[in-house]
Design a protein around this nucleic acid. Structure first.
Length: 925
RNA sequence: GGGUGGUUAGCUCAGCGGUAGAGCACUGCCUUCACACGGCAGGGGCCAUAGGUUCGAUCCCUAUACCACCCACCA
C-alpha cells in the first residue's frame, strides 16, 4: 500500500489506541508468570479539572519506560487512578455553587457530597480521556479512585491500626487554620509570602510607676513600662506575658514584675526566655500563646494561660474587650491601633519586611488556632524513611534530591491529618456523651467497644495525602494478602515532581515501610517542572498555560483566546492572558500530533529542575516524525514486492555502507539503552533522532539509491535487506517514545523484514549486538564522509548548485564506498587524473587528506587565491598551537600516550594539508 | 538566616579534564522522481567574574556576582 505524502497523525492515533486497549495489551499479566515484573504507580491526577502540561510530560516519560519494558517481555503493570484531592475538589465545587449564589451549607453535607461525586465522574472521565490521547498505556482494567470502597477500606484500616499503636493521637494543639475554609491545614499547605508590613512598638506600663533601668549603652534611664514590638497588634488582647532575654541587663531586674495590658484591664507578668533576641526590636516580646507558634511554646514553658480571642472565622470573640467583639481580625487591628494611639501607648510604627503565612489553597492569611485535631507521630517514621534512602533501598534521580528529602525528614513535625471539610475520608472515630473516643473500623464495632452507648461520629475528614500515601500498596489490594502485592511491590520507579517530595514521596516511603515492611519503589525520578518558553511558571492568570490536547490537535486563535480568558475572575488577569495569547500565538497553535509532543517532552527531559517548553522544538520533532514517515515511504517504494533477503538461501552481498549503517545502529541501540538506564530521556531521544535523520536518511538512503541502481542481484538484495531491517529496528527502537507512528509504519515494514507479530508494542526491543559493530567499515565511511564534505564544500565555494551533480576528477583511484557515495551525492561521472594533470586543468582544487579533487569549471583566479589563503591562514593558526603543545616536555611526559599520539597525528595532518595548499597556491596562474 | 540548582551560539538546552555541540532562528544555493514538515553549504561562542590545582580547565577546587527555587519561630 502507498503511504500518504506526509504524516497525518489523527486517524493513526485514534485507530491504534482503540486497538491496543481493546486487545488487552496494556494489562499486566496475572502473577505466576516467569517474566520479571516492572511496575509504575501513576501519581493519581486530582479530579479537579483537566490534564496539564506537567501531567503530559510525566506520563510521556512513564509510558516510554513502560513500553520499553513491555516490549522485551517484562510483566509490566502501570497502575493508574485518580485522587479525590479533598480541599482542592471541594473548592472547585463550592465555586460552582457560588456562581448559583449558593453555599455548601444550603445543600447540607449529604447533598453536597453527592454533588462532588457528580463532578468527580465528569472530571475523572475527562482526565482519562486525555491520557488516552497521549497514548498512555496504563492498565485501565485496574483503575482506582482514592475514595473507592477498596481504597477506603485501606484508609480505615491504617487509621485504626496507627491509633492502636499510639501513632495517631487527638489533641488540642495550635494548628494552621484557614479561616475562609474553616479548616486546619498542614505545615506543608502553608506558603510564606514576603511582604512589607509594619512593626508597631507598644508600651505596656508598669502599674506602680516608672522603673529605673539602663539603655543599650548602659546609661541609666527611667522606664514608664515595657515597650514590646509586634506585627500583629490585635493579638495583644490575648497576651499572657511579656518576655525578655534572661541576661538582658536592661530588663533583668524587672523579671517577675507585672505590667498593665493596655485596653484590657488586666496585668501580665514579665518572664525570661532565651527565645528573645536582645538586639531585635526593643528586646521585649509579647507572649500570645494561643495565636502564635513561637509564643505557644513559650506559654507552655512558663505556664501561661492560653487565651483565645478569635472565632474560627477570625473575628474577635467574647474573650476580647467588648468594644472589639465581632470585629474581623483586620478591622480589629485598626481599632486596636486607634485606641492605643489615643491612649498614648503607641510608641512607634516602622515598615518591616516579613513573611506572612498564606493558605496554599485560598491565599488567605493563615491564623494559628487552638483546636482539637488528629495527628500522626512522625519521629519514628522519619527515622525509617531516612534509613531507606541512606541505605540505597530507594534511590533518587537526579541524586541531589536526596538532600532535600533528608533535610525535611530531619526537621519533621507531627502531621495534622484532620480537616474540617466534607469531601474526603471521614475519620473513623466516634464520641460518646462524655467525649470519650472510640476508634473503630465500623460504627457497630465502635458501639460494641463503648458498651452500647449512643455515639456520634467525628465529622472531620482526613487530609487527602493520608490516603495518597497508601497508594503503592492499597492499589494492589492491601490490607488483603494478594498476588499483586507480592509481584508488584515495590514498584520499579516513581516518576513525579519535586513539589510533592514531602507531601507524597516521603510519606509513601514511611507508610509503606510501616505497613508492608517494603519500600514502595526502588527509584524516584524527579521530573522537571514545565514552564513556558521564557521560563515563566505556567498559570491560568498569566494566560501562558498550554493544553497538551491543543498541541496534539491544534487550535485556532479565536478558540485559544476564548479558552485562556474563560474562568478568569479578575479583569486584570483576563487582560494579561489576552495579551500573552496575542503576542505568542497570533495564529493559534498548529497541530503537532501526540508523537511529536511526546518526542519533544523526551528530548527536553534532562536533569535540570525546570523545562522550558518551546513550541519551536515541538515543531522540529513534528518534522522528525514526517521525516521518519517519508523515509519509510521511500523504503517501501523500493522494497515492497521485491526480494528483501528474507530467504536465507539466496546470496546476499553487503557493501561497506551496508555494514556501516548496521554498525551505527548497534551503537545507537547501546546509547538508547544507557539513556533508559540513567533516565536520560534527552540523550536517548537525541540518539534516535540523530540516527534516523543524520545517518539513515542523510547518508544511507542516498547511498542505497545508488546501490539499488547499479548493484548486482546479490548486492541489491543486500541493500534492500539492510534498508528494511535497519528501518524495522529503528521503528522498534523509537516506539516507546513515539508509539503511534511507529506502529503504523511497522505494520508495513515488519513483514518485509521477516518479522511477525500483531503489534510493535509486543515486538522485542532492539538490543545492541557488539559482533555487528564493524570498526573497519566505520573508519572507512568516516573518511569517505570527510572527503565528500570537502567536495561539497568546494562545490559550494565555486558557486555550483550544491545538490546538482557535476563531473568530478580525483587524484587517485577510489574505494568502492567512495565511488558509490560520490556518484550518489556529488558527481555525474568520476575520472581519475594525476596530481600534475589536475594542476594543469586550471580549476579550483580541493584537498582532503591525501586526496585532491576538482570540478571542471572556469576558475576565478582571484577568488581561488582568496579561498586557499583563508584555508592556509586557518592552518597556520592551528599549527603553532599544536607544536607548542608537543614541544612541552611535561605534556609529552605526563599526558596519556593516546592523547599525545592524537595530537601528533593532528599536527601531521595540518602540516601535510598546509604543504599541499601552499603548493596549490603556487601553481595558480 | 540556612540549603539546593543554574549562569555555554540570537532563543531553549546538551557536554564536563585533552580540536566547543544540538534543535529552533539566521545567510547563500537548490522545487532532484521519500520528505520544502525538504536537501546542500555556511555565519555565529575570551563556555558569568577572580583566584587556585594540573603538562593542559568550559569541565575539578575556593571565593564573588547575578538568576531561580526550597526550608526557617527575629516577634
Amino acid at each position: 500500500m502507498a503511504l500518504e505524502k506526509s504524516f497525518e497523525p489523527h486517524a493513526v492515533e485514534s485507530r491504534w489506541y482503540a486497538r491496543w486497549e481493546s486487545a488487552g495489551w496494556f494489562q499486566a499479566r496475572s502473577a505466576g508468570t516467569a517474566a520479571s515484573p516492572y511496575c509504575i504507580q501513576l501519581p493519581p491526577p486530582n479530579v479537579t479539572g483537566t490534564l496539564h502540561m506537567g501531567h503530559a510530560f510525566q506520563q510521556t516519560l512513564m509510558d516510554s519506560l513502560i513500553r520499553y519494558h513491555r516490549m522485551p517481555g517484562d510483566n509490566t503493570n502501570w497502575v493508574a487512578g485518580t485522587d479525590h484531592a479533598g480541599i482542592a475538589t471541594q473548592i472547585v465545587v463550592e465555586r460552582q455553587l457560588q456562581e448559583q449564589g449558593k453555599t455548601r451549607h444550603d445543600l447540607g453535607r449529604g447533598k453536597f457530597v453527592e454533588r462532588v461525586w457528580e463532578w468527580k465522574q465528569e472530571s475523572g472521565a475527562t482526565i482519562t480521556r486525555q491520557m488516552r490521547r497521549l497514548g498512555t498505556s496504563c492498565d485501565w482494567s485496574h483503575e482506582y479512585f482514592t475514595m473507592d470502597p477498596k481504597m477506603s477500606k485501606a484508609v480505615v484500616e491504617v487509621f485504626v491500626r496507627l491509633h492502636e499503636e499510639g501513632l495517631i493521637y487527638r489533641g488540642k494543639r495550635l494548628v494552621n487554620w484557614d479561616p475562609q475554609l474553616g479548616t486546619a491545614v498542614s505545615d506543608l499547605e502553608v506558603e510564606g509570602e514576603e511582604t512589607t508590613g509594619t512593626m508597631w512598638q507598644i508600651l505596656y506600663p508598669f502599674p506602680d510607676g516608672p522603673q529605673a533601668s539602663t539603655d543599650k549603652d548602659g546609661k541609666p534611664v527611667s522606664l514608664r513600662g515595657m515597650t514590646i514590638a509586634t506585627t500583629r497588634p490585635e493579638t495583644m488582647l490575648a497576651d499572657g506575658a511579656v518576655a525578655v532575654h534572661p541576661e538582658d541587663e536592661r530588663y533583668r531586674h524587672l523579671i517577675g514584675k507585672r505590667v498593665e495590658l493596655p485596653l484590657c484591664d488586666r496585668t501580665i507578668p514579665i518572664v525570661a526566655d532565651t527565645m528573645v533576641e536582645r538586639d531585635f526590636g526593643t528586646g521585649c516580646v509579647k507572649i500570645t500563646g494561643a495565636h502564635d507558634f513561637n509564643d505557644y511554646g513559650a506559654a507552655l514553658r512558663h505556664n501561661l494561660p492560653l487565651i483565645v480571642i478569635f472565632t474560627l472565622d477570625a473575628k474577635i470573640n467574647e474573650n476580647g474587650p467588648p468594644q472589639f467583639q465581632g470585629m474581623d481580625r483586620y478591622v480589629a487591628r485598626k481599632a486596636v491601633l486607634a485606641q492605643l494611639e489615643s491612649g498614648n501607648f503607641l510608641v512607634a510604627a516602622v515598615p518591616h519586611k516579613m513573611v506572612v503565612p498564606k493558605s496554599g489553597r485560598t491565599g488567605v492569611v493563615v491564623e494559628p488556632m487552638l483546636t482539637d485535631q488528629w495527628f500522626v507521630k512522625m519521629d519514628g517514621w522519619a527515622r525509617s524513611g531516612l534509613d531507606a534512602v541512606a541505605s540505597g533501598q530507594v534511590k533518587f534521580f537526579p541524586e541531589h534530591w536526596q538532600s532535600t528529602y533528608n533535610h525535611w525528614l530531619e526537621n519533621i513535625q507531627d502531621w495534622c491529618i484532620s480537616r474540617q471539610l466534607w469531601w474526603g475520608h471521614q475519620i473513623p472515630a466516634w464520641y460518646d456523651d462524655e467525649g470519650k473516643i472510640y476508634v473503630a473500623r465500623t460504627e457497630e464495632e465502635a458501639i460494641k467497644k463503648s458498651g452500647g452507648r449512643k455515639l456520634t461520629r467525628d465529622p472531620d475528614v482526613l487530609d487527602t495525602w493520608f490516603s495518597s500515601q497508601l497508594v503503592p500498596f492499597s492499589s494492589l489490594g492491601w490490607p488483603d494478602k494478594t498476588k499483586d502485592l507480592d509481584t508488584f511491590l515495590p514498584s520499579s520507579v516513581l516518576v513525579t515532581g519535586f513539589d510533592i517530595i514531602f507531601f507524597w514521596v516521603a510519606r509513601m516511603i514511611m507508610a509503606s515501610l510501616h505497613f508492608t515492611g517494603k519500600v514502595p519503589f526502588h527509584h524516584v525520578y524527579i521530573n522537571a517542572i514545565v514552564r513556558d518558553a521564557e521560563g515563566q511558571k505556567m498559570s491560568k492568570s498569566k494566560g501562558n498555560t498550554l493544553d497538551p490536547i491543543d498541541l496534539i490537535d491544534g487550535i485556532g486563535f479565536e478558540a485559544l483566546l476564548q479558552k485562556s480568558v474563560s474562568g478568569l475572575m479578575l479583569a486584570d488577569h483576563k487582560k494579561k492572558a489576552e495579551k500573552y495569547v496575542r503576542s505568542h500565538f497570533p495564529n493559534g497553535i498548529p497541530s503537532f500530533g501526540a508523537d511529536a509532543l511526546r518526542f519533544t517532552f523526551a528530548s527536553l527531559a534532562n536533569f535540570s529542575r525546570t523545562l522550558n517548553f518551546d513550541l519551536g522544538r515541538c515543531e522540529g520533532y513534528r518534522n522528525f516524525c514526517n521525516k521518519l514517515w517519508n523515509a519509510t515511504r521511500f523504503v517501501l517504494m523500493n522494497t515492497e514486492g521485491r526480494d528483501c533477503g528474507t530467504d536465507e538461501s539466496l546470496a546476499v552481498e553487503l557493501s561497506t555502507w551496508d555494514k556501516w549503517i548496521i554498525s551505527t545502529l548497534q551503537r545507537t541501540e547501546a546509547e538508547v539503552e544507557k539513556g533508559f538506564a540513567e533516565y536520560r530521556f534527552d540523550n536517548l531521544a537525541g540518539a534516535i533522532y540523530r540516527f534516523v535523520w543524520d545517518e539513515y536518511c542523510d547518508w544511507y538512503l542516498e547511498i542505497a539509491k545508488e546501490q539499488l541502481a547499479k548493484g548486482n542481484e546479490a548486492q541489491q538484495r543486500g541493500t534492500r535487506r539492510t534498508l528494511v531491517r535497519v528501518l524495522e529496528t529503528a521503528l522498534r527502537l523509537a516506539h516507546p517514545i513515539i508509539p503511534f507512528i511507529t506502529e503504523e509504519l511497522w505494520q508495513d515494514v515488519a513483514p518485509l523484514a521477516g518479522r511477525k507479530g500483531e503489534t510493535i508494542m509486543l515486538a522485542p526491543y532492539p538490543k545492541s549486538q557488539p559482533e555487528k559493530i564493524d570498526a573497519a567499515a566505520e573508519k572507512e565511511i568516516a573518511e569517505v564522509k570527510q572527503h565528500l564534505l570537502g567536495a561539497r564544500n568546494l562545490k559550494s565555494e565555486m558557486k555550483l548548485p550544491t545538490n546538482r551533480k557535476t563531473p568530478i576528477i580525483f587524484s587517485k583511484a577510489l574505494s568502492t564506498s567512495m565511488m558509490t557515495a560520490s556518484t550518489a551525492l556529488v558527481s555525474t561521472s568520476i575520472s581519475v587524473l594525476s596530481e600534475d594533470e589536475i594542476s594543469r586543468l586550471n580549476t579550483p582544487v580541493g584537498i582532503s587528506g591525501d586526496l585532491r579533487f576538482t570540478f571542471k569549471v572556469e576558475m576565478d583566479v582571484a577568488a581561488e587565491r582568496e579561498r586557499l589563503g583563508k584555508e592556509i591562514a586557518r592552518l597556520e593558526g592551528e599549527i603553532p598551537k599544536a607544536r607548542a603543545k608537543l614541544g612541552n616536555a611535561s605534556f609529552v611526559e605526563r599526558a596519556p600516550a593516546k592523547v599525545v599520539e592524537q595530537e601528533q597525528a593532528r599536527l601531521a595532518g595540518f602540516e601535510s594539508t598546509l604543504a599541499r595548499l601552499r603548493e596549490q597556491l603556487q601553481k595558480l596562474p
